[in-house]
Amino acid sequence: MPEPLTRRGLLQGSAAAAAAIPVLGEAQAAASGRPQSQKEQARMSAVGLTVNGREVHLQLDPRTTLLDALREHLHLTGTKKGCDHGQCGACTVIVEGRRINSCLTLAVMHEGDHVTTIEGLGTPEKLHPMQRAFITHDGYQCGYCTPGQICSAVAVLAEIEAGIPSHVTEELDRVAFSESEVRERMSGNICRCAAYPNIVAAISEVAGQGTGKDKA
């Protein structure tokens, strides 16, 4: 059976073709954290991480963000680069149990840390309940922000469970799930397709709070 044609496969094919041309832009190399020269090599730092349960060891330019380490070095391309400035949330991953913007942290700062990306939450054969709920409720259109939305959403429910208050929590000591809590807590994840009502519905379902459709 022939390999199914995928967008990723096509892009990888063209990237391989491009790599055959021996002129890789310096800026491009620097951006991806690949070494350029002996001087660059001398500045490389070693970092060990546990990503989705797998221990990995990398030699990185200290400029490499956690996002670029995941995407360019570990080829975990589920985590997306949107704004690269912490404004859009597309790069959200869970580090040591907490959601963070992987674009605004250096990989070398995470020695020994446990990182969970969208690939670690579930697989096409065994979806995480939040992934399944996003599909059920059509919580996306183009899908680019979705891995960040889902990682964020999983952590949001854990934050509510842990009693961490938010801006819309009326009494700081009484933290409970509500749709307004979800909207406030998910404000760091932008969706340009504006799938927000369906995202809220998906998260509400996983929280065991109905479909959320009636209020969406």
């Binding site: 959200t92 963070i100 807590r185």
Partner: peptide
């Protein structure tokens, strides 16, 4: 309990991801 204005100010800032860092 004792410095609620500080909790409130922090929670009014940034996003959940940024406040975690």
């Amino acid at each position: 309990r004792d410095y609620a204005v500080l909790s409130r100010a922090l929670l009014a800032g940034a996003s959940g991801q940024l406040r975690n860092k």
